[in-house]
């Protein structure tokens, strides 16, 4: 059939470009809402984990371990098929958003936890000693300092959630990967494997590459800033000595 250099195959992909773009749109929607959900879950569980209250920390730990140590595919199948058979069909988009949100929520929770734990204990104490309650401490003092630790790995999570929409294929989603697969196996469109997958991959790359570059740039500038303030501290102590 049509190979990489077949103009006919490329032409077919071009004709069906709208289908690919629709797949991309579905992927963006699932990833976008999934991301929002994962941020909510991750924020709450991250705060639970650092609350110093044992039951809350245990809930956060259990969730993170359970979700991180089972495959996303299984979680999707469970949500879609298991619930469908018990009479609560969720629909493909809701399944996608829920499963991606739940899965990445566990990772976001760990990122948030690490970010909060990176703030020195003295900051919590200073805020408490001024009379800030939990919310005030977090809003004005702790989270603004955590955010620079949280952001770079968070952007990586965005990239991952975007790529993980491909798992929706297992429940027959309409995301970019599923659409590509239907395209290359379709009765009228079948066979244009190489062009179809190249185009699909290119679409993923166009979205993900700027994001992950942003993340690594952020990390580098963060390190530079730390080095600079570290140097300043050293200079000061040298001056003193």
């Amino acid at each position: 059939m049509a190979g990489l250099f077949s103009a006919n195959a490329w032409n077919k992909v071009w004709i069906y470009r709208g289908t690919f773009l629709m797949g991309l749109k579905n992927t963006v929607i699932s990833a976008g809402f999934g991301l929002l959900l994962s941020l909510c879950i991750g924020m709450i569980l991250g705060l639970f984990a650092t609350s110093g209250k044992k039951p809350l920390a245990a809930i956060a730990r259990a969730y993170v371990e359970l979700i991180q140590n089972t495959p996303l595919l299984l979680q999707m199948c469970f949500l879609y098929y298991a619930l469908a058979f018990s009479g609560h069909s969720l629909g493909i988009l809701v399944t996608g958003v829920l499963s991606l949100g739940i899965y990445h929520g566990a990772y976001v929770a760990e990122v948030v936890r690490a970010g909060i734990e990176a703030v020195p204990k003295g900051q919590f104490e200073a805020a408490f000693s001024q009379g800030f309650g939990y919310l005030g401490r977090m809003t004005y003092i702790i989270l603004p300092q955590s955010i620079k630790v949280i952001l770079p790995p968070m952007v990586n999570q965005v990239v991952n959630i975007f790529k993980n929409t491909s798992c929706l294929y297992i429940v027959g989603g309409a995301d970019l990967i599923s659409i590509t697969y239907s395209f290359v196996t379709g009765e009228n469109t079948g066979g244009a494997y190489a062009p179809a997958y190249l185009v699909s991959g290119l679409l993923f790359f166009i979205v993900c590459c700027p994001l992950s570059s942003l993340a690594s740039m952020w990390e580098i500038s963060l390190k530079k800033r730390e080095d600079r303030s570290g140097r300043m501290d050293r200079k000061r102590s040298e001056r003193v000595a």
Partner: peptide, 11 residues
């Protein structure tokens, strides 16, 4: 009350 710490703990 307010408090002054050994490590200053300025924000």
């Amino acid at each position: 009350t307010s408090m002054v710490f050994q490590q200053f703990n300025l924000y």
